[in-house]
Computed example of a mutant assay.
Amino acid sequence: MIRTTDVLDLACLLEASPYMEQLEVHMWTSFDRARYHKHHGELRICPSQPHSNLKLVNMTGFYGQKDQIELALHILKNATVLEAMKIDPKPMVAAIYAYVNCKDGLCFVDGYKAAKKYLRKAYYRGVLDIVRVRRRDVENVAVFKLVDPFWIALMAEDV
């Protein structure tokens, strides 16, 4: 089956919402999709759409897949007044529903490494914060400990 949509399609939100100041993108994708490597093809670049109000971006579930990197780069390049962008490899959505498993843990490491490698040029602006995840943080760790307690508490409040 050929995918016709992906995370990069969310870039249209910037154009459709010119007054948006804060964006949260909570992703949870299959752990069997590998993190991006150059042999997956060149990263796509959307046409430039400067956004003059977006100040804060929070992305969770960043496993370092090609379309995720492309979206993050698009935001970093086009949000002209961006003050802070946080990339967290741990998926908030999966945490809420407790669908995280041991294989996801290694995806957190992949997401961290891919963000460091492909988004590091954005560091010069001082806006990018990538939540660090190391292999030793996820290996031989109980699955529930991989989930950020903040999201578990948030879910408990909603129940």
Rank of each mutant, 00 (worst) to 15 (best):
V57W: 05
P89A: 11
L119S: 00
E24A: 09
L106W: 08
L43F: 02
R134H: 15
V93S: 14
Y124S: 13
D32R: 12
N140Y: 14
P18G: 02
T29Y: 01
V127T: 15
A11H: 11
Y99P: 01
A98Q: 14
V7D: 01
L119F: 01
A79I: 02
A72L: 03
M1D: 12
R135Q: 10
A156P: 04
A84V: 11
L154E: 08
Y112H: 13
A142Y: 10
P18E: 03
E15K: 15
P50S: 02
E70K: 07
Q65I: 13
P47G: 02
R125N: 15
H37K: 07
L73R: 13
S17K: 09
C107A: 07
K55M: 07
K121P: 04
R35M: 09
K90I: 14
Q49N: 09
I45M: 10
S52H: 14
A114M: 04
C46G: 02
Q65R: 15
A11S: 11
S17A: 11
H26M: 11
H40S: 03
F62Q: 03
A72D: 00
F150Y: 12
T29K: 00
E157I: 08
N53A: 10
A34R: 11
D104G: 03
V143Y: 09
S30F: 05
V93R: 08
K117W: 07
M20F: 02
D9C: 13
K145A: 14
I87E: 08
